[in-house]
Design a protein around this nucleic acid. Structure first.
Length: 272
DNA sequence: CGGCATGTTGCGCA
DNA sequence: TTGCGCAACATGCC
């Protein structure tokens, strides 16, 4: 599921399902998701509480409760939330459930996660993973100057920097790949070699890539293959110039790009 | 059967 | 201290 648009769509659903709801029962059936806390912390954090807010930063969700408690949810690679009737049997790969009453109607919100890379963390304050996140493109907006400063400090490949959650929160492999193509920038370009215009183009492209996924009412994860410009399309023609799309591995992740129309910036010089 | 996958973390090493 | 490459996590799908 997860990249910023997917998680934002999940937040909107959870807001509809849970805002103002009173939690009558909550169970997490897999301690891997709550590790290192015991799975019962999930229930302890939620049961008897009223949900007062649902927020998102990057790929993290935060349920806020009326006693000051918080439940942080990260979807990992395959996590997602769904609403069912309380009596509905467990979904395939269901790992947790939150049964609520809202406006006199009961429902059951289920967490599903095949690979169990997701997280469910109960706390009474913000966790470090949440607080360490960089600016969120939707919550905070994309600040070109801030992005420029963050990129100029490092010589790592721009794609790796974009996916660093401290630089921009919420950008994953799909968004980074798509935004770099839209900005006509080679993913290998060192962050500190980008020109001011590159960063502006990148900021615009990121905003467009996110808006595109949101507008289609689905995030990257549920998009049918073929709805991306270049992600997953190595070997196919570039939609812009028809050059055969290249693929390489950067920071352990597959990067598809057009070697013809995505400009590769080079390090200007090495100090010392 | 083999290879790949939307994410994150931790380890060894330079 | 920083950065890099890589394995690991667990499972589905093509």
């Amino acid at each position: 599921m997860p990249e910023l648009p997917d998680v934002e769509l999940a937040r909107r659903s959870l807001r509809r399902w849970l805002l103002g709801a009173e939690v009558h029962a909550a169970v997490c059936s897999d301690a891997r998701l709550t590790d290192p806390a015991p799975a019962r912390l999930f229930a302890r954090t939620l049961v008897g509480k009223t949900v007062t807010g649902i927020s998102r930063r990057g790929k993290w969700l935060r349920l806020e409760l009326d006693d000051g408690g918080r439940m942080f949810s990260h979807l990992g690679m395959t996590g997602g939330w769904a609403r069912l009737a309380v009596e509905a049997p467990p979904l395939r790969f269901e790992r947790a459930r939150i049964d609520v009453v809202r406006r006199g109607r009961s429902s059951s919100v289920r967490y599903v996660d095949a690979r169990r890379f997701g997280r469910l963390i109960g706390a009474h304050e913000d966790i470090a993973d949440w607080s360490a996140l960089g600016p969120d493109p939707l919550v905070d907006g994309i600040d070109v100057q801030g992005l420029s400063r963050a990129l100029a400090k490092r010589r790592r490949a721009v794609k790796e920097l974009l996916m660093d959650q401290r630089v921009v929160a919420g950008v994953g492999n799909i968004l980074a790949t798509e935004a770099l193509w839209m900005a006509r920038l080679d993913p290998r370009s060192p962050g500190n070699a980008l020109l001011p215009g590159d960063v502006r183009a990148l900021a615009t492209a990121l905003g467009r890539a996110i808006a595109r996924e949101l507008a289609e009412g689905r995030g990257c994860g549920s998009a049918e293959p073929g709805s991306f410009f270049v992600y997953g399309r190595a070997g196919e023609p570039c939609p812009r110039c028809a050059t055969r799309l290249s693929s390489l591995v950067l920071g352990g992740r597959t990067s598809v790009f057009c070697a013809h129309c995505q400009v590769r910036r080079r390090a200007r010089y090495t100090s010392r």
